[in-house]
Design a protein around this nucleic acid. Sequence first.
DNA 1: CGCATTGTTCCTGTATTGTCGAAATATGGA
DNA 2: TCCATATTTCGACAATACAGGAACAATGCG
Lengths: 117, 117
Amino acid sequence: METKSAVASLGALAHEGRLSTFRLLVQAGPQGLAAGEIARRLGVLPNTLSASLNVLSHAGLIEPRRQGRSIIYTARYDAMRELLAFLMEDCCSGSPEICAPLAAIASQACSAEGACA
Amino acid sequence: METKSAVASLGALAHEGRLSTFRLLVQAGPQGLAAGEIARRLGVLPNTLSASLNVLSHAGLIEPRRQGRSIIYTARYDAMRELLAFLMEDCCSGSPEICAPLAAIASQACSAEGACA
DNA sequence: CGCATTGTTCCTGTATTGTCGAAATATGGA
DNA sequence: TCCATATTTCGACAATACAGGAACAATGCG
């Protein structure tokens, strides 16, 4: 991942409403959520949410698909993985002993939910 | 980590110059780098860099310490870990099978450098 | 002390972002 | 066709962020 693309992703997430939106979609899984449902859950105006969805979408972090009258958004996990990988990239070269605990984070995050074994 | 603090960190990194600065410091390890050295390596004006360092510092991602005439900045790895953990947090609850590969990222990042093994 | 070095703060013009109301588009059903 | 639902687009305004020039601190050395 190039720096510019990372900056775009980070910028998209650097906003309370957008970050909440993205997390909601990550939680929702591949099934996704309709725009209206997101707006309802977050208590935000439809047009404001639409702007947020547009930014996230443009950054490649989420993806829309039409379903009847609704537009369903889903998180793009591969983009998320790329971003995380990018952030970790330089850590090891600097100080492996400090980087090492990062490997544990994912499994910790998983075990916290009791989901990933 | 709360959402607000995450937004602050993400916002601090959502800028080409600041992201490059942070990555440089992550690479540099606990030893850190002097502000002037960073400015030289990135080819950026001292005052501009100072603003960047201020933002990163205020977000808790880096830490300054004085050493003679220079001010040495170091990356705060714990803050970085918190941020990464925050981003992964909701992944598992949504879809463990998609989250699982995240655990491999850290070790991949390590093995790519041949550092952690 | 006088002076060079290292960084930061202040200031200003400019550009970008965020939010909301209002209007527009797309879909599905009576 | 007519209407309700779901969502986006447009237009405008306030707020914020960014870059760079100039002036200001702090340190160390002669």
